[in-house]
Design a protein around this nucleic acid. Structure first.
Lengths: 123, 123
DNA sequence: CGAGTGTATTAAGCTACTTAATACACTCAG
DNA sequence: CTGAGTGTATTAAGTAGCTTAATACACTCG
């Protein structure tokens, strides 16, 4: 389902959250699809179930998952997280743009790169 | 000189590095200007001199500072860090742009916001 | 009923960050 | 030359966060 990067120095649960976020946002997981249980994903990634639980809890808090007692965790419908992710990503993009401007990168270069990125092949 | 943000959960030395980077890149500190000593900046920020030393060492490693033995740390000339910061900032901007595209933010919105950011008043 | 869910708790170990206390070589003003 | 002020290195200790491990319990469903 996902693969951990051992060079990444962030906490494991944060890495899991980020990778699952991207998987959900990109459509790799559909609404109401059942997530692996904390125990099975823990086995798969060689990580303690508690750590998986911590990642799932954060994903639920952010609206990406919902829990059905005794049944498992499921992917939340897009309406639950669409606005949040857009606002978050846009804010980070604006910050990155301000930094670019501060570093002396010309507007024209960003305009060209922006078009290039939007023309990249889908993965 | 700088102010620490106690809500920021990153290590103190990283926060200091980031704030001094921005201060140098934005022109708030001139080339060959003398930096505060590790002891005095430690006093000013209520932080151990070792922590300041760690931040200074990283800034030197990144080309923002140079050290004169027995005299102190000084701001490096722009040629030492200009290429590095541009490449780093541009790479982060491209990543943010890919995330924006992945989240469904339309190209036109970014194009408009891009112009807006470059028209913001200088601080 | 029993296996499989989420969830909670407690204890322990580990790592990174930070502080503290020294120590030493260097530079420069007096 | 001397001493104050530099950077730098070392060692020890404390703290906080992350992770694992071992249980336990309520829930759902075949």
């Amino acid at each position: 389902m996902i693969l951990l990067d051992y060079r990444d120095k962030r906490p494991i649960y944060e890495q899991i959250v980020e990778k699952l976020e991207k998987l959900i946002v990109s459509g790799g997981l559909s609404a109401d699809e059942k997530m692996p249980s904390v125990r099975s994903l823990g086995m798969e990634l060689s990580v303690n179930p508690n750590t998986i639980q911590r990642a799932y809890a954060q994903l639920e808090q952010e609206g990406y998952l919902y829990t059905v007692s005794g049944r498992g965790n499921f992917v939340a419908p897009e309406s639950e997280w669409r606005d949040g992710i857009k606002q978050k990503v846009l804010q980070e993009w604006i910050t990155a743009t301000r930094n670019a401007r501060l570093s002396g990168i010309p507007l024209e270069q960003l305009q060209n790169t922006l078009k290039d990125v939007y023309e990249e092949e889908k993965q």
